[in-house]
Design a protein around this nucleic acid. Structure first.
Lengths: 348, 348
DNA sequence: ATGAAAGCGCTAACAA
DNA sequence: TTGTTAGCGCTTTCAT
């Protein structure tokens, strides 16, 4: 494998001159430059980024840590991240934690060893600060995405779960629903808590008492969470008239359960979702959702990170939360109810 | 930022001893090891993988180049790749080419500079060999995934598109379909060519003449390709009675077009797809498909790559094609036709 | 415009 | 078991 030294010898110049050519320095005569470039081509020379990075302390690599790239929400974030990174000359190392804090810590360690210049993290547990603090201690720029960490002032890009859930719930309430089931992710994740908060807020505003039995915390924001909890919710004596899916995976589980039970949407039960469900939104757009622009989240996160990298050790701008507003998209998955005498509900 | 030297000084040992502790060498007394570990912890020391890699020539990084991580087929591959990589102590750098050969070449160059230990590539153009040859010249292990390169003997993990398309077409033929439209990706991609080949084979076997007007090559294996070509196919004088989607994105485009035209599946038109369509397969499994195990493809590709990395410069096993058989899943998106006098088709 | 010397943080190879 | 020396491939600094 040819090194800079080999190129220098072949071109009959010093390694320093070759280095200047590689890095497009002025101060190289056209003639010399051509000689060097010819030598590089002839030798099939590829600069060694390790050696370069060892000296310059710049690797042009960012780390992206999410729970599961297979979740289209994170896939799209990843695409936004990668596009923006490459546009700025950075590569992305991808990490899947599966909502496991230990895996997350291992990834953080690996990324730190590899001297990534910044990390975009969607934390597996919004209460745990160990991993994050190691990043900060090492002075590696960090931007949180989708989920925030309690009591830690950090750059964070996320959508407004409280308001999104509020809107969705309020919409259901406006249709006459009073018993609304909601299935979200685990308590340790900020979006789950926020979505419950928005849900409660809408009910309280409408003077509807909150029934804790209708609130379901899942284990992993997964299809299985949606499926299992829907079955349970609908097996009770007083089942909900509507179900709120806390993310797209949960919603898919909900739809599966409802299908198996032979119920029709919206005739037998109404459904809303936090987040679009892929493909379905184009092939059969019937689901009422709150939709977030996850690609944009990825773009903004990298832009924010790049800014931090540039101003590193120079300025000290306070960290900021960048909050995107999700958009309510009303389609056909909810039915209007009318209350008739007492508690029973009847169609219009 | 603490270096190995700082740790050595603090622990009162030589840097070599610290190095031995980091790399879990035996030949370090328990006592010394504890001293060193304490020093590392106190200093918040994180080993520098750049310096390490510069000497050992091992970076524990693999490159994954696909057209678009946003395509669930590649997402799942990526997950299989990442899981298997991390299990073996490797990280993944993710690259999206958007089917653009120039972008692909740029990524290859970046990966080579970063001294990745191996590359998994789904080539944007199966006829272009430049990028691939640069990888091979540099002696970096390479495994192709999903798509093969013409006339180049390389490790390649893919599913049998010919047989998958053959099965799907044969199934349609068995239902009485004779005019079957097919929409695939661009000609430069091997899977598109193979799927057409399988399609033709099934028709020929059944003695059905091939109508080139029913064969549509898309530009990017995209939803738009499916949408546009379906509209065109169905606007002709003798439209097909069935449409074959060349991948899941194309199928989604097909479904969208059919929906807009107000046609019912399978009553007005039959549809089959190469590859499952996400979520739909769980919420409403009506589509007849040939399904591939893309997660497994990712796993196998890394295993193959890792083997090559291990035996690098040692043995010279011939490259191999690892071909997975896709599985025909018959559901409810196709209707049986019966031929009545001449050319007209009538329901059973 | 070009080059020489020093060294980034670490390990290989040897010595003790 | 531990340490010393050399050097991985490159850039920084300073000199010419």
């Amino acid at each position: 494998m040819a090194t800079i030294k080999d190129v220098a010898e072949r071109a009959g110049v010093s390694v320093m001159t070759v280095s200047r050519v590689i890095n497009n320095s002025r101060y190289v005569s056209q003639e010399t430059r051509e000689k060097v470039e010819r030598a590089m081509k002839e030798l099939g020379y590829v600069p060694n980024a390790l050696a370069h990075g060892l000296i310059t302390k710049r690797t042009h690599v960012l780390g992206l840590i999410v729970s599961d790239i297979t979740n289209p929400f994170f896939t799209t974030i990843a695409r936004g991240v990668e596009d923006t990174a490459i546009k700025n000359g950075f590569n992305i190392i991808l990490c899947n934690t599966d909502e496991d804090v230990e895996k997350e810590e291992k990834y953080i360690d690996l990324l730190l060893r590899k001297r990534v210049e910044g990390i975009i993290l969607s934390p597996a547990d919004c209460n745990k600060r160990d991993g994050i603090e190691r990043i900060i201690m090492r002075n590696v720029p960090l931007v949180l995405i989708d989920r925030c960490i309690d009591g830690l002032n950090l750059d964070c890009v996320y959508s407004d779960s409280i308001s999104g859930a509020y809107e969705l719930t309020k919409y259901l309430v406006s249709l006459g629903h009073k018993r609304i089931g909601i299935i979200v992710g685990p308590r340790r994740i900020s979006t789950a808590r926020d979505r419950i908060e928005g849900y409660k807020k809408a009910l309280q505003e409408a003077g509807i008492p909150i029934d804790e039995a209708l609130i379901r915390w899942g284990e992993k924001y997964s299809r299985e969470d949606g499926y299992k909890n829907t079955k349970e919710l609908l097996a009770t004596n007083s089942p909900p008239t509507a179900i709120f899916g806390g993310n797209r995976l949960i919603t898919v589980g909900i739809l599966k359960a409802i299908r198996e039970l032979g119920l029709k949407i919206p005739d037998d039960i109404s459904v809303v979702s936090f987040d679009e469900v892929e493909d379905m939104s184009v092939t059969n757009p019937f689901l009422t959702v709150v939709s977030q622009d996850s690609y944009k989240m990825g773009v903004i996160a990298v832009e924010c990170l790049l800014k931090r990298i540039k101003e590193k050790d120079k300025s000290f701008n306070a960290p900021q939360n960048i909050v995107l507003q999700p958009e309510l998209v009303i389609r056909e998955s909810c039915r209007a109810l009318k209350e008739v005498k007492g508690e029973s509900l009847v169609e219009f």
